[in-house]
Design a protein around this nucleic acid. Sequence first.
DNA 1: TTCTAATATCCGGAAAAGCGGATGGATGCA
DNA 2: TGCATCCATCCGCTTTTCCGGATATTAGAA
Lengths: 109, 109
Amino acid sequence: MFKALSEETRVRIVGLLTGGERCVCDLVAILNLPQSTISRHLTILKNAGWVASRRKGVWMYYRLAETKNPLHQGLLAAFRANLPSVKALAADRKKMAAYLKSKPAAGCD
Amino acid sequence: MFKALSEETRVRIVGLLTGGERCVCDLVAILNLPQSTISRHLTILKNAGWVASRRKGVWMYYRLAETKNPLHQGLLAAFRANLPSVKALAADRKKMAAYLKSKPAAGCD
DNA sequence: TTCTAATATCCGGAAAAGCGGATGGATGCA
DNA sequence: TGCATCCATCCGCTTTTCCGGATATTAGAA
């Protein structure tokens, strides 16, 4: 559960997902890392219960997962409340905002 | 910050410290691991800001650290609220309770 | 069915983290 | 000052994790 958050890229992903559901291609574009790397991190987050996924056509959308584990709920609440103002993640949020505006031209709907 | 919690022993230490301040020898007794291992983990937790220490004579007492980082505060609150009921940590708590009773005979005050 | 695009998994090598005995430093007491 | 105890750090070794190109899988469109 904590091990899944022990890697910077995975925390960045969780940070981005506090902004809502995103597909893998979005994350690849923002994080600027190989697709295989992003996908591997998403699998780890999913196995740990931090995120859930939904298929829509060819695209997989990932979001923060709902859970019944009280500790997990508490931590998620802390994330939703505080991650959006963490400085270290500001660049990602900014990039995502710009990306979302130009998205219709970019690809996945 | 999260990396420091990515190791089971360190989570167990945080779990034990939700019960209050403990000295290194207490933790060595409960966790049944070499002193150097415990000390190394404590250093990591301290550098990450999760715990603080206080010297009393020859003994070093460790406790959960107070912090002004909002995210950190939120996570810590979730720990204090929920770790005490996490099953995986029950054995440690039980052992600590028994240990504390017999402590006057055991050593550090 | 065939092709294309999005995503997941595989795999060999590199990097990081963990381990614990040995050692060193600090403190209190005689 | 000498000694004993508690704790922190060092160091060689083992284990785990990460990386990313290559490959496999899946869904939709032609």
